[in-house]
Design a protein around this nucleic acid. Structure first.
Lengths: 219, 219
DNA sequence: GAGCGTTTTCACACCTTCTTAACGCCCCAG
DNA sequence: CTGGGGCGTTAAGAAGGTGTGAAAACGCTC
């Protein structure tokens, strides 16, 4: 049973949405105003949020921003405005999809399905290589059951190596993925971070071996 | 949930593509210029890239080449030009498929399906000669299932020989490909590296034979 | 602005790889 | 028979890549 939160000021629209959602098996809660919507989101912990952009008081975009500060719940935007700029702004601020009023019920439900499905498959994208686990979503890595405390760069580095575990990864490949914006001297700092990473990995079944003149390999 | 990256300068085309892809359940990110596209590819790690050949600044073909230096993500080329030469160039440089604008949405999605499906069974560009495999992207070589530990020069040498497996390769040809910047005495060091390579190949069904006065041949 | 963690830079020791040179072998021509 | 050219092999110095510690620069929070 999934729970949905509707943040929408027009009562008629709320009723319509509630009917639609409940017919689809959702548990529904509502809020008619932005501030209240945020409170409900915190209390009820919905699995999906339907958010009207044209809210009185705090605008829908602001609600979205505030919500995204602490939650990654899927958000479906509702709006009468078909303006590209606002749509883009909402998506850039973490909205998952966008429906323009008036909309067909079939379309709404289809889009809900999509972002719900996305949520489950996105749940914990992680890379496993032997005793090593790298959780991309939460930026956590662990060997066996012991968590590793890594800096962002170290994490990105480990991620690249773990993605191709057991195979050689060229220095070029590593640098381009860890430092996408070109920096001064690529291979200079790489050695240092490899060094740090090796120390943190220790001797727990995972090691980074160098292939001289080519790159590195995670075993 | 797959992620797609669109590298395309025309905004209208980007919008069209985004709609198409999102309706198909893709998560979409965009770039309107080549350099930025490469950065996005590194940041976002898309599962498929749609690349316009007619980009301003860095041409689409250059983007493809740069991308292929470190990534083997499937790439679908978009272009208005229906010229056979460019099409061939793109495919030779690692593009997976090619769509000519204007195209039907059904065609695009069908081709996307194909290269996505291919992605799982797909392997990186490699040269196979009997029991010998030379993986160019990962700089790995193996005989049967046993990996070979080669130095960069040895790898380059083996690559040249394997490319023309069974045929004679002139000493001149070898030297020019292994040492692009001309060094002092070509055939001097070549003998040494051939020697090293022979030792590492051992007696496992692959051998380098000399054609006196001409060059070498891989059997 | 101070303090802290992170990233980058730098210097130097160490190791692998490359180059060069030397030598012996085989084959073939003189 | 003999000398030379091409080749295989080995060894050693040269060149370049790598590991590591420390210091400086950077970015963020308080």
């Amino acid at each position: 049973m999934s729970k949905a939160l509707i943040i929408e000021d027009e009562q008629q629209m709320r009723r319509l949405l509630r009917m639609l959602l409940e017919s689809r098996g959702y548990e529904v809660c509502e809020a008619d105003e932005g501030q209240r919507g945020l409170q409900e989101a915190a209390f009820q912990r919905p699995d999906v949020v339907l958010l009207d952009l044209g809210l009185p008081g705090m605008g829908g975009l602001d609600v979205l921003k505030r919500l995204r500060e602490w939650s990654d719940v899927p958000v479906l935007i509702l709006s009468v405005r078909d303006q590209e700029t606002i749509k883009v702004q909402a998506l850039e601020n973490g909205a998952d999809d966008y429906v323009t009023k008036p909309f067909g019920s079939a379309e709404l439900l289809a889009r809900l399905d999509v972002i719900q499905r996305r949520r489950f498959t996105r749940q914990s994208p992680e890379i496993v290589a032997g005793p090593l686990k790298v959780d991309l979503l939460h930026h956590e890595a662990q060997i066996g059951d012991e968590p590793l405390k890594l800096t962002p760069t170290e994490f990105a580095l480990l991620k690249v190596l773990a993605e191709h575990a057991g195979r050689i990864v060229t220095q070029n490949q590593i640098v381009k993925q860890v430092w996408p914006v070109q920096t001064s001297d690529p291979s200079e700092g790489l050695r240092v971070h490899i060094n740090h990473l090796r120390k943190k990995l220790g001797v727990r079944g995972v090691s980074i071996v160098n292939e001289p003149g080519i790159g590195y390999r995670l075993e």
